[in-house]
Nucleic acid binder design. Structure first.
Lengths: 187, 187
DNA sequence: TTTGTTACAGAACACTTTGTTCATTAAAAT
DNA sequence: ATTTTAATGAACAAAGTGTTCTGTAACAAA
């Protein structure tokens, strides 16, 4: 990739991140991003069609980081050790999210949170789907999956809103404690 | 209240409802609402400062309906019958929500859903707070509360997204089945 | 019925933001 | 050295927002 392109792209990401520290996504205009990134107007639109597309790209970047080990360990997944496996994975995810603390606070504090959550849930669904089929409970499988994804993403939101004052370990523990994951079939 | 005011207010609500049946909230402009309601531009702004304020008023209307019995029975609340009490209340709420099916689909299908959910959660928090303190589990009380509110609101969203193909009774049952409410102290 | 009050209609307006276009300049690749 | 690609920044059209103002109609109270 052309050095100039990468440089511009990075400065746009950086600009949005910086602005998110003090302003709500909703109230940030494209012009402000342009000024903060110190680039030309047409340059921005050469990279991203809309502000939402930029946010999407930023989220994707974050998730590629957060779920990187996730994806790598796809083959090595097993149920041995009961829930410990899942709990460890969730802890891992929370640790990675903490690396993006500043961004997350800005993103989740307003309606951009919905977009973030939407993408986040897609990744979580991928992960939880392996577990949801193992839950023995009298409810549709897709409901179980939705419940797991929904309640964990709500847990993350709660955690971020509380300035991440609990450790990833504690937070994952709380989630497991309350979730239906204890109804999993231990194979 | 002046008949004219009420008439105008109603026509604005009606217009937004109608538009929500075919368009996403995000893509509906104030001008469209004005045209659909067949009123003057300045008239709209005499009633609502912004489109979001209008949505908020619409949500409030819906919730006053949905939680009407809720509020009435505040004093008569008791834990007798274990979870049956809560399950019945949730079923009730789902029934009332079904009365607003058309609106809900339009509201929840896009970013206006976040606003709806925000207000919805406020009401749910009021309701669940009585239960959350009775849960015996090793986690902060506000986490438990957040978990109940979050997972139930996600349940509602799932239900609406699935065209409400399950009955309120079934849906409430599924939720109870998976929630931590079975860890409640039976007094 | 008359009178004072309040709401509505709708045009005009200033303002903000968006997204595109284009000629020019600079940097990168070969 | 030449060609290709990206960035600049001004100018532009379009859409939407929220306000203001004048004339008109509906309302409530005497």
């Amino acid at each position: 990739m052309d050095r100039r392109q990468k440089k511009t792209r990075d400065s746009i990401f950086k600009a949005l991140s910086t602005l998110l520290e003090t302003k709500q996504y909703r109230n940030i205009t494209v012009q402000e991003i342009i000024d903060e990134a110190n680039i030309g107007r047409s340059t921005f639109y050469a990279h991203f069609e809309t502000k939402d597309e930029l946010l999407k790209a930023l989220c994707t970047d974050i998730f590629n980081h957060v779920f990187s080990d996730e994806l790598m360990s796809e083959n090595t997944h097993d149920f041995s050790g009961g829930n410990n496996n899942l709990e460890a994975r969730l802890t891992h995810i929370l640790h990675h999210l903490k690396d993006n603390e500043k961004n997350l606070v800005g993103i989740l504090s307003c309606e951009s949170g919905e977009l973030f959550m939407k993408y986040f849930k897609e990744y979580l669904t991928e992960m939880f789907i392996r577990y949801s089929n193992e839950i023995r409970v009298n409810a549709p499988a897709d409901f179980v999956l939705n419940h797991l994804v929904g309640s964990f993403s709500e847990t993350v939101k709660w955690w971020v809103d509380n300035k991440m004052k609990y450790t990833p370990e504690e937070t994952a523990r709380y989630f497991i404690e309350l979730s239906c994951i204890n109804k999993i079939i231990d194979t």
